[in-house]
């Protein structure tokens, strides 16, 4: 029972549907602090919807969802924004804010309505930009950045929000391998050093295997399997859910499991 009360998120019998279409069905999960969670599954398996529920952007049709023992819907928005931050997958900004402006938007939940960013807010924003490798971008316009650069600005904005829980929705899908690893390393550091919790929807299974402590495998809106990365990412599970013939082996160079995809077997 003590494990229960330690849980950060407690998801009980949660279902959600868009109109007629059931997106999530009877989800039961607990998330503990100081861990890196990976959320994997085919397109349309409900990853983004689950993340939106966790962050309070959506409310479950049935079931209950609590954070630190309190219902998520019961939190005032600003308070929740100091607990949970989101790095969304899509980012299109129409107005020419500078990179610093956008990263400082991460401080929004800390600044009073008619206030301006304090020197501390600026410092946090600068540190977030340095961590993500975009120092020196301050005065560039976000409208003039490449897709990958924008994505890193969004990640820096979420870091500047300084929340104990960081939620990433395929945050690195536009990035090259170096910037992808950079973001995963920064985020992993937050878990290891600051004791933050990360929940990341990840398309790349090898990336999930390399960084996640625990993995939640979704299939058609249900939890297919959840647990330690090596227990969930098995040849059988991957074959069954993705329909891809594969081999999973322990890689001595990287010291984690590696998946090699052979062919689509569907």
């Amino acid at each position: 029972m003590s494990a229960m009360s330690d849980a950060l998120f407690d998801v009980r019998n949660v279902s959600f549907s868009y109109g007629e279409k059931d997106v999530l069905r009877d989800i039961n999960l607990t998330f503990s602090p100081k861990k890196f969670y990976g959320l994997i599954g085919p397109n349309g398996s409900g990853k983004t919807t689950l993340l939106d529920l966790l962050i309070g952007n959506l409310e479950p049709a049935s079931g209950s969802l609590s954070y630190k023992g309190r219902k998520i819907s019961g939190y005032p928005r600003r308070e929740l924004a100091r607990e949970l931050s989101l790095v969304p997958q899509d980012f299109s900004i129409q107005f020419s804010y500078t990179v610093l402006d956008v990263v400082l938007m991460g401080r929004h939940p800390y600044i009073p309505r008619f206030g301006t960013p304090s020197s501390h807010d600026l410092e946090v924003a600068q540190m977030a930009m340095a961590a993500i490798g975009i120092k020196g971008f301050e005065n560039r316009f976000v409208t003039e950045l490449s897709g990958g650069e924008k994505q890193r600005v969004v990640a820096a904005r979420a870091l500047a929000q300084e929340t104990p829980v960081l939620i990433l929705d395929e945050a690195t899908s536009n990035l090259d391998i170096c910037h992808t690893l950079e973001i995963f390393q920064v985020v992993q550091q937050r878990v290891r050093q600051k004791g933050d919790t990360v929940i990341a929807a990840i398309h790349d299974l090898n990336l999930a295997a390399a960084y996640c402590d625990e993995i939640i495998f979704l299939q058609e809106g249900r939890v297919f399997s959840a647990g330690l990365a090596e227990d969930v990412l098995t040849e059988k599970n991957i074959r069954e859910v993705f329909g891809v013939e594969n081999r999973v082996y322990y890689d001595e160079f990287s010291c984690h499991h590696q998946i090699t995809f052979l062919y689509a077997a569907k």
Binding site: D52, N57, R77, F91, R157, Q161
Partner: peptide, 23 residues
């Protein structure tokens, strides 16, 4: 003017804006 700063945040898109505490 009351919503001016929220409107700035809104330019990140509704999903990101909500996660920053904007209703």
């Amino acid at each position: 003017f009351f919503y001016a700063r929220d409107l700035n945040i809104m330019s990140l898109g509704p999903r990101a804006a909500e996660s920053l505490g904007v209703d």
